[in-house]
């Protein structure tokens, strides 16, 4: 039977671990709130963009734009948004399971986040680019990624662009999803909702009021607008993936803390038993010795 000193030492170490995971849980919770807030503060931007887009859409021939054009798909570019760090439960495993469904020969992978890069390289996919993740997501950063995708698409290196990321359903549920980014299939209203963000619910662009003047022309405004539309979409995916990561981490860390505290409880019980046993033993020895002397 283990001696009391060993058990005491283990209790101390487990308690320390619990303290660390508890702290990580708090940090993840605050980062998650920040990512959610950031996603929501994009709402005025989304509304304005919807309005401008609606005006453009009624004025130009949407088929003619290269970013809207459907081509025969020989190669698909896939943006995989994962996480840099682990300790977030099954998040990346689920994400990679979804990504592994992709065709190995026809897919070109662009990764955002180290875990995705490592996973896809291990699975034997063809990686074309890897972008660093930032702790605080910014549009300038995500724009670099979307700009790269647009250029590859226009250059003809890839014929469609998809994004795979963890959708934020709720604090305890994140679901890997796959969506098409390019060609832009139909102009949807940009939404900044995080929860239950399903594609079917989003209403089409509402028809605009008024007859604005375009300078220089509606087509050219649309030309310049579509990349921004895409940048914004990628930015929102990025934020959502971030929120998912942090909430997954928060839950994982909460479980770890709970488990550690359970272990502390079990060990304390064991410690008391051992202590009691050794006292009983000593008493027994003393009384036996007394009896023998008498």
């Amino acid at each position: 039977m283990a001696n009391t000193r060993d058990i005491r030492r283990r209790i101390k170490s487990v308690r320390n671990t619990a303290q660390i995971t508890k702290a990580m849980q708090m940090v993840a919770a605050s980062k998650m709130r920040k990512a959610q807030q950031l996603a929501l503060s994009g709402r005025p931007y989304a509304e304005l963009m919807n309005s401008v887009l609606a005006h453009c859409a009624v004025r130009c021939d949407l088929e003619a734009h290269p970013l809207l054009e459907k081509r025969e798909v020989r190669r698909t570019g896939v943006l995989l948004i994962s996480t840099d760090k682990g300790l977030c439960g099954g998040l990346n495993a689920n994400l990679l399971r979804e990504a592994a469904k992709l065709d190995r020969d026809r897919t070109r992978i662009v990764t955002l986040g180290r875990k995705g890069r490592q996973g896809m390289a291990r699975l034997g996919y063809h990686l074309v680019a890897d972008f660093e993740m930032r702790d605080t997501p910014g549009i300038a950063h995500s724009k670099a990624v979307s700009q790269f995708l647009i250029e590859e698409f226009l250059r003809g290196a890839i014929d469609e662009v998809e994004v795979v990321y963890s959708e934020y359903v709720s604090t305890i549920t994140q679901r890997p999803v796959r969506r098409t980014l390019l060609p832009i299939q139909r102009l949807r209203r940009l939404s900044t909702r995080l929860q239950g963000d399903s594609e079917d619910e989003e209403p089409a662009l509402e028809s605009p009021a008024g007859e604005p003047t375009f300078e220089p022309s509606a087509a050219e405004v649309l030309n310049a607008l579509l990349p921004h539309y895409l940048h914004f979409q990628v930015f929102q995916c990025y934020l959502e993936a971030k929120a998912s990561e942090q909430s997954a981490r928060m839950v994982a860390m909460k479980n770890a803390t709970d488990n550690a505290l359970q272990i502390v409880k079990d060990l304390t019980l064991q410690y008391n038993k051992v202590r009691q046993a050794s006292i009983t033993n000593e008493l027994l020895e003393i009384s036996t010795a007394q009896l023998a002397m008498a």
């Binding site: 401008v52 008024g210 007859e211 604005p212 003047t213 375009f214 300078e215 405004v221 310049a224 607008l225």
Partner: peptide
């Protein structure tokens, strides 16, 4: 009093 305009 500017007219309704959209531009880049």
């Amino acid at each position: 009093g500017h007219e309704h305009l959209i531009t880049g």
